[in-house]
Design a protein around this nucleic acid. Structure first.
Lengths: 209, 209
DNA sequence: CAAGTTACGCTACGAACCGTATCGGAAACG
DNA sequence: CGTTTCCGATACGGTTCGTAGCGTAACTTG
């Protein structure tokens, strides 16, 4: 995921995809080792076996660099079909938690989110690269559940509908992130089951009015 | 909150409490203006009208400085009695969101949490200064609801009981934090009401089995 | 009051990092 | 081929870090 997409095909020597990958890997490794605040561009470049100038040609500063390194981690999130709504939610909760619990991810994600509180551009990047990607999982899971008859069809009011999806998304992602990064407790199958039961019952009860 | 507590009374000139307060204020203000990554110790010192060396005598680096400035922000969180469980939860959700939405707090909190992923000492500070303080609010709200008959008494198994409290805490705090800092959407009364309805119905349904 | 102790503001300093510029050479295009 | 673009290396001024030394201010003890 190089920063300026090489549109169709340009003249001259193309950017080294090996350098791209080496920089991303080195960034994530360095983030694990030393954290955001002590991560230096020069160190990343050396670790990647790349000149510092090569790095600056792709990302204009530390923030840009780390955002792209982190966003690519979320590419792997998918929603397997586990048979039922309860199982689907538990699956995605566990997959998300597993991603967060990997040493590189939590430090990286938190660092980027923290930085975004003062950088609107960064915040937009996060929305596009992470939030929207995850929100699609919620929509996908709901469609399946509706096909199975586990959930009622979309509400008449599309706005009302969108608000509900947003709420579910914040509750699921928020709880997993909070337990993992703030409470620093593990998200194991038992917790996932307990949590899923709670919100599905809440959904069912709230919908039946 | 000076770093080394001046035990009983020491000889020599005491630390200036005015300097303490000025540094804390300047740190929070600077955090609002420029964020964590661009905050410099020299800038804070100048803003506080204090020599840089005076600052380094109290906190050994930027991290220590910011942690103490942030932790003190959470002293104000209390649980007002709003009449019912639903109202109590909505109150605390709105109060917590209000705290997070104040310009200084979200940036500071995220910065500290991010930094804590690589600093066990910091993580322990956060647990004590923030997590435990908030978890007490959950316990307090439940006691009130039990007195009103809105919730069943404590479960027979104390461990089971603690797990439920932890779950509720992560769900509430996580959802509010996630909506505020990741989704970057406002926590208004309507959202608070919708959210509270969801989890209370979930709790009721889950308890009735 | 005098002596001792500690904090203060100020200045200066080496080290590290940032982000930019410049250069010769290498790799892909037409 | 020649052109274009990227690469690695080196150098640079500017900023911040964290420490050290100094003379002075404030407070405690005898």
């Amino acid at each position: 995921m190089p920063s300026p997409a090489p549109s169709p095909r340009r003249a001259g020597r193309p950017r080294s995809t090996e350098a791209d990958a080496a920089i991303m890997d080195a960034t994530r490794e360095a983030l694990v080792d030393v954290g955001w605040s002590k991560l230096t561009v020069g160190h990343v470049a050396a670790r990647a076996g790349v000149a510092k100038t090569t790095l600056y040609r792709r990302w204009s500063n530390k923030g840009e660099l780390v955002v792209h390194a982190v966003a690519s981690l979320f590419d792997e999130l998918e929603l397997p079909d586990c048979g039922s709504l309860q199982a689907d939610v538990e699956c995605v909760v566990l997959a998300f938690a597993d991603l967060l619990q990997r040493p590189g991810t939590n430090a990286s994600l938190m660092a980027v989110v923290a930085e975004s509180t003062h950088d609107p551009v960064l915040r937009e990047h996060i929305r596009n690269a992470i939030v929207e990607r995850q929100k699609r999982l919620v929509l996908q899971g709901r469609e399946r559940a509706q096909a199975r008859g586990e959930l009622p069809p979309d509400a008449a009011d599309p706005e009302e509908d969108a608000r509900l999806v947003d709420l579910i998304f914040d509750v699921i992602a928020g709880a997993v992130v909070h337990r993992t990064l703030v409470s620093a407790e593990p998200v194991d199958p038992e917790w996932a089951s307990r949590f899923t039961t709670l919100i599905l019952h809440g959904l069912a009860a709230a919908a039946s009015r």
